[in-house]
């Protein structure tokens, strides 16, 4: 079975108030599909961190979620500035967020590490000046 249910979410780059909307929608949808609570939690947090990153750094973007029988794949696409040094960006505590973002509780340099922590596979495809695509996979019942 390679058929999947596909869902698309647009992430508004302008405000932190609506940031998280896509993650909350995703969480509700995964609940309706009856996925295990821990799987839902991991996917929702990974999605939220991705969403926040797109709002903070890229002026928004889009998320596509594919739900298969044995796994869920999230693809986050933005046309922001790109990540110059992916290895550095993956280090816990490294952040380029502004002070105003930090005052909201973000910018701890844990976003990308959390996305990796909560997913089984994660790949970052980024070109400076063009944008970033992040693909994350979580296997169900593993």
């Amino acid at each position: 079975m390679s058929e999947s249910l596909n869902f698309h979410y647009d992430v508004d780059g302008e405000n932190f108030v609506s940031a998280g909307q896509a993650s909350v929608e995703l969480k509700k949808m995964l609940r309706r599909l009856g996925l295990p609570p821990d799987t839902i939690r991991r996917l929702s947090i990974a999605m939220y961190e991705g969403e926040i990153n797109m709002v903070i750094h890229a002026g928004g973007g889009a998320a596509d979620v594919e739900v298969y029988e044995d796994k869920v794949v999230i693809r986050l696409v933005d046309h922001g500035p790109g990540i110059a040094d992916v290895e550095l960006a993956m280090q816990e505590g490294y952040s380029t967020a502004t002070d105003s973002v930090r005052s909201l509780g973000f910018g701890a340099g844990m976003g990308l590490p959390n996305m990796k922590r909560y997913t089984d596979e994660m790949s970052i495809d980024s070109v400076v000046g063009e944008g970033t695509t992040i693909t994350m996979t979580v296997y169900i019942n593993q």
Binding site: I45, Y48, E49, I52, G105, F106, A108, G109, M110, G111, P113, N114, R117
Partner: peptide, 9 residues
């Protein structure tokens, strides 16, 4: 904790 990503992690 007050840093949100830290809390989520």
């Amino acid at each position: 904790g007050d840093l949100l990503s830290w809390v989520m992690g």
